[in-house]
């Protein structure tokens, strides 16, 4: 038992994450070729517009479901909405936000773009605190579009062109199909003003996505309504990111490696549950924490992955080997 624990705690998270992300990327983008179908209620941006996905983003379905006329929505007919939501929750509850950090294809693409930037040796950008505070709210606006717009549609306040409005605005719709050679989403729809606005927004957002994620780590995740949705239910999740504030020295190592610039991870020494709405649960912070047990990932209060001095030293490649070489 201790050996397993040590193996995990001393493991190279970067490599593990890379391969796991690749694995999930293949499953979710090319799963259709392998007859994998994980349903339509996945808590990640595995876009249903791409033909061969191994499972679809929940938002595509829920937007269509909620767009039903209200008389139907608030009746027995909507048991489907409920089961869809429960399946979503069931998927989500197990891995919590780790879906973002490990499985989301759009997230993986951003990580690859980041690697490309690293390859070009271009420094990344960060937001200042006021910018950050402002930008992080945008994802709730998108969540509003995802949930409330279809409801308004069902009421007849919006016309049918707004069906699946968020999907039309989402970069995932344009990007993920590219990986199966489908560029048919890369169009502007001139049929109506609304359609033009939505597709143009999506197009623009996609360009911003590429440029943004090139200079900012996990650029899109700031705006991701899925992340906001996750956060609402993250209290029920099994996998949890916890912090022992007493052991924290506030050294800021975790903040330094955090892709999402979450300040609380280093500065908050009071809360036990340190998962914040922007978090993508990549666990880089745990890997980067040099204090014994200060940050840890739990399932049912059992520590699965915890920060250790030894693990830190190993991951940072701190050893005495250079000495002998010299």
């Amino acid at each position: 038992m201790n050996k397993i624990r040590e193996f995990i705690n001393y493991g190279d998270l970067r490599k593990f994450r890379f391969w796991l992300q690749l694995f999930f990327f293949i499953i979710f983008i090319y799963g259709g070729y392998m007859a994998i179908d994980l349903g339509r209620n996945l808590p990640i941006f595995s876009c249903g517009y791409a033909r061969e996905t191994g499972g679809n983003c929940y938002f595509l379905g829920v937007q269509h479901q909620l767009a039903r006329p209200w008389s139907r929505l608030f009746s027995y007919a909507s048991i489907g909405v409920l089961t869809g939501f429960l399946t979503f929750l069931l998927w989500f509850v197990v891995f919590n936000k780790a879906w973002c950090g490990y499985a989301c294809p759009l997230g993986t693409i951003q990580d690859w773009i980041t690697s490309f930037r690293k390859f070009l040796k271009i420094p990344y950008s960060t937001y200042t605190r006021p910018q950050y505070q402002f930008l992080k709210k945008i994802k709730y606006v998108f969540l509003f579009i995802v949930i409330i717009f279809p409801l308004m549609l069902g009421l007849g306040l919006l016309d049918g062109e707004w069906r699946g409005a968020f999907c039309k605005m989402c970069p995932g719709r344009l990007i993920t199909p590219l990986f199966v050679g489908d560029y048919s989403q890369w169009t502007l729809d001139f049929s109506t003003g609304t359609a033009l606005f939505l597709t143009a927004f999506g197009m623009g957002f996609t360009v911003v996505f590429f440029v943004g994620s090139f200079i900012k780590k996990r650029f899109f995740c700031f705006f991701c309504p899925m992340s906001a949705m996750h956060y609402i239910f993250s209290d029920w999740a099994l996998l949890r990111l916890k912090k022992d504030g007493d052991k924290c020295t506030k050294c800021g190592d975790c903040y330094n490696v955090c892709d999402m610039q979450i300040k609380d991870i280093a500065d908050d020494v009071k809360s036990k549950n340190i998962l914040r709405d922007d978090c993508i649960f990549c666990m880089k912070c745990v890997a980067a924490c040099p204090e014994e047990d200060a940050l840890h990932v739990d399932i049912f209060n059992i520590k699965v992955f915890t920060s250790t001095k030894g693990g830190f030293a190993k991951r940072m490649n701190i050893n005495n080997k250079q000495e002998t070489k010299k």
Binding site: L188, F190, M203, G204, V207, V208, F210
Partner: peptide, 23 residues
Amino acid sequence: AYQSYAYALVISIILLIILSLGI
């Protein structure tokens, strides 16, 4: 009849250049 790849491509490339240049 109502969707345009050409416009999309042009606009996205222009946007890409402007953004990159801006940054």
